[in-house]
């Protein structure tokens, strides 16, 4: 009697999960062929091998430094590899991913939110699933494996059982992969050079008179790891602090260069919210950055 039961549920589970496994593997393959997320965009859409600089960061780096503006001002070749809702650990992974493609850069501009420099990063970031299609790469697998949370384990075990990560992040991974069948070159909220901008919500001119101190001590251990990886590949590390409404970052270190533009924009009209600039602010901040960066290039 029991045999029939095990045969029947075995058939359903094996075939069901078998199909799910194949569909998931196919889904990851589709994403790897696409330009939908930054990791595959870098592999499939960026033929250039050598850059003057790359921008690594979270939403602040993504929406503040417009590489198109910077390159047009100082005649450089750069790309923005920032991803929103990510941490320093994710930026380290992106740097590894960049180098794994055989690409090089003279400068690495690290532009996460100021708070990230002192965060602990006890878990993977909200958008780290974007590396899931590359889970078979050892550096990606090792990255997820170091975390103990359920979602990190699901992603790392996707190396053998792709269904785990794809089901868990089905809205973020499975459905976009279906979408890429129709539009493989579609990019998810970034332009051909990896930039994105927030719209102008409030065009009201209002001077920001007071900037409160925001101390940063670079205690996140990923700073040292990024620095070491940069050194090993002859890349100069620059930490960039993007404009914050009413805050001035206080940060000093001799380990790497700092471009502190946290208080460079002194009008509310440049901001989308407290942490992010809008299109106008991005233009201003990018020009400010280009001017300072030009001196470092020399």
């Amino acid at each position: 009697m029991m045999q029939l039961f095990f045969k029947r549920i075995g058939f359903i589970l094996l075939l069901g999960f078998g199909i799910a496994m194949l569909v998931s593997a196919g889904s990851l393959w589709l994403l790897r062929q696409s330009s939908f997320y930054k990791p595959s965009f870098l592999v499939n859409d960026i033929p250039e091998k050598n850059f003057d600089y790359i921008v690594l960061g979270a939403s602040t780096g993504l929406t503040t430094l417009n590489t198109t503006v910077i390159d047009s001002v100082i005649q450089t070749k750069g790309i923005n590899l920032s991803m929103d809702d990510t941490a320093l650990s994710s930026q380290y992974l992106m740097l590894e991913h960049f180098l794994a493609q055989g690409k090089t850069t003279k400068f690495c501009v690290l532009a996460p939110s100021a708070a990230s420099f002192d965060a602990k990063d006890p878990d993977i970031s909200d958008n780290d699933y974007r590396f899931l299609p590359y889970i078979n790469e050892d550096y990606v697998f090792q990255y997820f494996k170091q975390y103990t949370s359920t979602r990190a384990k699901l992603v790392s075990n996707s190396k053998w059982l792709p269904m785990l990560g794809v089901s868990y992040f089905n809205v973020e991974v499975f459905y976009p992969s279906l979408f890429t069948i129709i539009q493989p070159k579609k990019r998810n909220r970034f332009d051909a050079k990896g930039n994105y901008t927030y719209p102008i919500k409030n065009n009201k001119e209002a001077a920001i008179s007071e900037f409160k101190a925001f101390p940063v001590s670079f205690s996140n251990h990923y700073i040292a790891k990024i620095k070491a990886l940069c050194m090993a590949n002859n890349i100069e590390l620059i930490c960039y602090f993007s404009p914050i409404k009413g805050r001035k970052v206080i940060a000093e270190t001799t380990s790497f260069s700092i471009i502190n533009h946290s208080d460079v924009l002194k009008n509310e009209a440049y901001f989308y919210d407290v942490l992010h600039v809008n299109t106008r602010g991005r233009q201003m901040a990018s020009i400010h950055f280009a001017n300072v960066f030009q001196t470092l290039l020399k």
């Binding site: 058939f11 069901g16 569909v23 794809v166």
Partner: peptide, 19 residues
């Protein structure tokens, strides 16, 4: 039946909320 059950398992995998 066994086939609709497999279909429902797939729906759970790819339409379910796990996060």
């Amino acid at each position: 039946n066994r086939y609709t059950a497999i279909a429902v398992v797939l729906l759970i995998c790819f339409m379910g909320v796990f996060k």
